[in-house]
């Protein structure tokens, strides 16, 4: 059954606009698709490699701003900005990753949180990023209106999810798993942990920045308010909710996180209360996520016990 799930999900995603193509529905669907891409990218960093990144939205901001600035300043079609976006994303991953990846666990989380804020505040204060108001009039990707753009998003996102699933099974993906489960043992067995972790960051940045391009095209504007910490937290929530390290799981998690608040819209101001309750219930009932991977190393609670008598 497993191998049909992906194509079936894709089919559903493609079919919905034929049932309901109202601007509202298309907007929700497009936002969800972009969110799935973000979750797939963060899953590489957090799920595969076990690096807790609390500022992931910084990479999305880098992608959105790069394509927005280039396309408005030089009146380029958005697609032409993609090579530059990829270069800037990789550079951003190296700049952020090179110093931070020497740290582990909590320290890494705090520093990435800081970098997320730095990117947002820098964008708020620079002139060429449009300051607090951001950048307007970004050309969309014009392929037959909002429905057409949605299909483009679905295609890109499907490739991204498939790509991340392939990465997991690659030699690099195995190295990520070794580092996630036991970094010291991986290092002792000859895994170049620093380079391998940096590559997780680079792939995460490429996914995030590409999602940023779609985001800029979707809204035709980018502003710093879109890249607040809450956004990073929501993407992380999608990854954890779906099942860390599970390419399928995070797709489900991202869809839930982006669609459930819309479904609950009738509840008005209370909807986020219910949303919170739903999340808590899910995590209590399925602590490994909605659709976990088969194998996940249980937390190492006990250090090997030293025995007293040894002569």
């Amino acid at each position: 059954m497993g191998r049909w799930v992906g194509p079936a999900g894709l089919l559903v995603a493609v079919a919905i606009p034929f049932v309901d193509a109202s601007p509202y529905t298309l907007n929700v669907l497009t936002t969800a698709a972009i969110f799935v891409m973000l979750a797939a990218g963060l899953n590489i960093v957090v799920g595969y490699c076990g690096l807790l990144d609390l500022g992931y939205v910084a990479f999305m901001a880098v992608g959105a701003y790069t394509s927005g600035i280039l396309s408005t300043a030089f009146e380029l079609p958005l697609l032409y900005t993609i090579p530059a976006v990829l270069v800037v994303a990789v550079l951003a991953a190296l700049v952020i990753g090179a110093p931070t990846l020497r740290l582990r666990s909590d320290y890494l989380a705090i520093v990435t949180l800081g970098f997320g804020e730095i990117i947002r505040i820098t964008a708020t204060n620079l002139d060429f990023t449009g300051g607090p108001t951001g950048i307007f009039g970004i050309p969309g990707i014009d392929v037959g209106g909002p429905a057409g753009f949605y299909f483009v998003c679905v295609a890109v996102v499907a490739l991204a999810v498939l790509g991340s699933a392939r990465l997991e099974r690659s030699r690099l993906g195995r190295a990520w798993m070794f580092i996630r489960e036991d970094e010291d043992a991986a290092e002792a067995m000859g895994v170049n942990t620093y380079r391998v972790k940096l590559l997780a960051y680079v792939f995460g940045a490429i996914w995030g920045a590409s999602a940023g391009v779609l985001f800029a095209a979707h809204l035709s504007a980018v502003s710093p308010q879109s890249f607040v910490f809450l956004q990073s937290a929501l993407v992380l929530m999608a990854v954890v909710l779906g099942g860390m390290g599970s390419a399928r799981g995070v797709v489900v998690g991202a869809v839930v996180i982006s669609v459930v608040p819309e479904v609950l819209r009738d509840l008005g101001a209370f909807r986020y209360v219910f949303f919170g309750v739903v999340l808590v219930v899910v995590m209590v009932l399925r602590p490994q996520g909605l659709w976990p991977v088969r194998r996940r190393e249980p937390e190492r609670v006990d250090a090997p016990v030293q025995e007293g008598v040894r002569v």
Partner: peptide, 26 residues
């Protein structure tokens, strides 16, 4: 020069064969 660290550090959710394959990673 290969080091077997203290406390075994076997990947508990991987099979024996997969654990051995890790040894050949480099």
């Amino acid at each position: 020069l290969v080091h077997v660290p203290e406390g075994r550090r076997v990947f508990s959710t991987l099979t024996v064969l997969e654990n051995l394959q890790l040894g050949g990673f480099a």
